[in-house]
Computed example of a mutant assay.
Amino acid sequence: MTGAATILAADDTQEEADVLHDFLSALGYNVLVAHDGLETLSKVRLFRPDLLLLDIHMPGMDGFEVCRRLKADPLTADIPVLMVTGLRDLRDRVKGLGVGADDYIIKPFDFEELAARIAARLRAKQEADRLRLEQARTREVLQRYLAQPVVETILNGSDLALGGTRREVTVLFVDLHGFTALAERTPPEKVLELLNVHLGTAAEAVLVYQGTLDKFMGDAMLTIFNAPHPQPDHARRAVRAAWLIRTRLQQLH
């Protein structure tokens, strides 16, 4: 989250919406206002606010249904929803949390409490956004070297056995024929460029068939099929990967 956070305040009462707008603006937030459920849905999807302050009782579509739809949509599910409810409406508060609301605030507002709850939810969202970005970067790096099932196992925090088991595997060894002689008569920067292109192309082909890149050794690459994830057709995968490597490398020349 960069700059001032954007908050959408949804309330069907113009006077209360104006009060919220002025109060939140004074705190330094960018403030949007909606007056019914459909307008709220539309503005959330259009502007992607950092937080939604959502009154339960609105015309057309109540806050429960608005919240349920937003939380069911992957594009808006991570937007914090702070539901607004009456002092005596315990069942409304429970129902709101049940449809995915992140927190609630009771009317009439204690504005100090409202400011604190909003700040807490925005901090939590900022941390969640940071973690998602880190995971995306980690995924991008891992996908360069590991098959997709292995990447998902690592990122999901599942146990991944990296040793202690015995199983039959298929090893595919890739070596760039004639590369040593070529390297002796080629400038170092060109050698590095050729290695990156050729081994990168080979690695991508291996990952198509979900092989594991075990190690790089100069102009060679060692890959394994059937570990760490079982692959009943591991030999077939290795052969197909080898054929794809050969085809793609030939296309480079």
Score class of each variant (00 low, 15 high):
T2Q: 11
T247G: 08
L133S: 07
F111H: 09
H198G: 01
V151S: 03
L182S: 08
L46P: 00
F216H: 08
P59E: 11
V31P: 02
R132K: 13
D62T: 10
Y145P: 00
L222V: 13
R117K: 14
A4T: 13
A101H: 03
A128D: 10
G28L: 06
R69G: 03
I245M: 15
A235F: 12
P228R: 04
L172H: 07
R93L: 02
L162G: 07
G100K: 05
D18K: 11
V191Q: 14
D50H: 13
L20N: 08
Y145S: 02
G211E: 00
R166E: 14
D22M: 07
P149S: 08
L97R: 12
G100R: 05
D11K: 06
T223E: 06
Y104Q: 02
L182C: 04
E184G: 14
L27D: 14
V197Y: 01
P59A: 12
L41Q: 14
L195W: 06
E189C: 01
D36A: 10
D214N: 15
G200Q: 11
L207W: 05
Q231V: 10
R93E: 06
V99W: 05
L199C: 00
R236Y: 10
D22T: 09
M217G: 01
H21W: 07
R121Y: 01
V33R: 15
V208K: 10
L222R: 05
L52Y: 03
D233G: 02
Y29D: 03
A116G: 05
T2E: 06
G98C: 01
T2V: 09
F23V: 08
G157F: 04
A17K: 08
V191D: 08
V206F: 00
A10R: 08
T223H: 01
D102S: 04
L122F: 07
T13V: 14
K125R: 15
L87C: 01
D175Q: 04
H177R: 14
A115I: 04
K125M: 02
D214F: 07
A119C: 05
R248M: 06
F64L: 04
D214T: 01
D12H: 10
V81L: 07
Q231M: 13
L46Q: 13
M221Y: 04
F47E: 13
R167I: 08
V206H: 02
D18M: 07
I79A: 04
G100E: 08
F109T: 13
P59F: 11
V171C: 10
L133Y: 10
H177L: 07
V171S: 04
A101M: 07
Q135M: 11
R240G: 09
D92T: 15
A205P: 00
L46E: 14
A147G: 15
A34H: 06
L155E: 11
H198S: 12
A124L: 08
F225P: 02
A181W: 02
S158Q: 11
P230W: 04
L90M: 12
P49N: 12
E204F: 01
R93P: 01
A4E: 13
H198V: 00
I154Y: 03
